[in-house]
Write a protein that binds this DNA or RNA. Sequence first.
DNA 1: CTTTATATTGAACAACGTTCAAGCTTGCGA
DNA 2: TCGCAAGCTTGAACGTTGTTCAATATAAAG
Lengths: 203, 203
Amino acid sequence: MPAKAVSSATADRRQAQLEALLTAAEKRICETGSHALKARDLAADIGVALGGLYNIVQDMDDLLLRVTVRTQGRLDALFERETAHRPMTTRAQALDRLVAVALAYFTFARENLPLWRMMFEVRITTPLPEWAVEAQLGLFRHVGAPLSVIMPEASPEALTIRARTLFSAVHGVVYIGLEERLIAVPPQKLADEIEWLIRAGCR
Amino acid sequence: MPAKAVSSATADRRQAQLEALLTAAEKRICETGSHALKARDLAADIGVALGGLYNIVQDMDDLLLRVTVRTQGRLDALFERETAHRPMTTRAQALDRLVAVALAYFTFARENLPLWRMMFEVRITTPLPEWAVEAQLGLFRHVGAPLSVIMPEASPEALTIRARTLFSAVHGVVYIGLEERLIAVPPQKLADEIEWLIRAGCR
DNA sequence: CTTTATATTGAACAACGTTCAAGCTTGCGA
DNA sequence: TCGCAAGCTTGAACGTTGTTCAATATAAAG
């Protein structure tokens, strides 16, 4: 066999299998929650024997991690789609954009609740592979770019930290807000709080 | 047998067993993480047969929930101990107290990382029992009380929401900040960010 | 002390992720 | 066109898991 064909037929099939597997996993996660994912169900979904899963994916954690990164990719695309067209030259515009990013995050979380939750439930023992770290850090640019307009005199390091703080704060409000076991806050009120939070932090 | 003795010997033993079980569970969680809890290990720890666990606790979820509430109780006690002695008559004092609460939360999370994480990992299908909801809502008073001094003209409802927002924001910063899979931020810098966040939100 | 009711036990069960020897398919050289 | 080696796929089997329940041991009551 050739050592490493750039695109052999089997490699293509593996890619297709991987995508089918991820799609099936996402479907099941959305329907019944991430902890209800069963290897046997997924194998049946994509028409593969039980053991065959482990030719597509290293193990179940690997699968969850890939789903997570896929979700991050969709979130990234949403940020891009939702805010790229907004100008960012003045301070006020940058602030509006930051608010838009935060509200888009809230919307995404609400509309993709199980997948969104998964992003923070995945616990890994071994260090994250680089492609996973990249996908995660890439998201911060949607906060960092507007923030650099709002805080033009800040050092890059201070800016990175502050961007993380703002993102984390919004994340926290969304996270606790969507936790149903406490008193439910109406989504519009939550959105208002998120906007207030961003504007208060940027004054 | 009497229908319900106020304090029979067996009921006392059950209480003791429950406490031993919770303590053993906490120990294991702190040592090896919450998802490494095994029914057989715990049964051995407290000197009970495997099936005996289900006389003490309904099932594993029930156990985790009880550990969670215990942790919330310790957090509550820490808030009390750390901030009750601070006066709260002036606005500035109330603000200082709010900052103290937030920093205490951060410290608690850092020093009890596995137990603290568990509080947000427990996923319940059935609605939370009242005693669990109580313990959770009780924590908010440590934010609500100082905040009512800072926002004296706000309606009780607006105050509740704002308290939740502030708590959630701080929680988010702590949560993401302690996530090790991203770039580690020095604790002192994190603490600074938390204090900044509170003060920015209360201006 | 006998009897009755409760508490405890641990073997058994179903469901889970993961492995691996065996069979099957595939692609290439003759 | 055929045959053969190399990899892929399979599904039975394994070790763990949480949970159950008939049997046993213990405690309470008359």
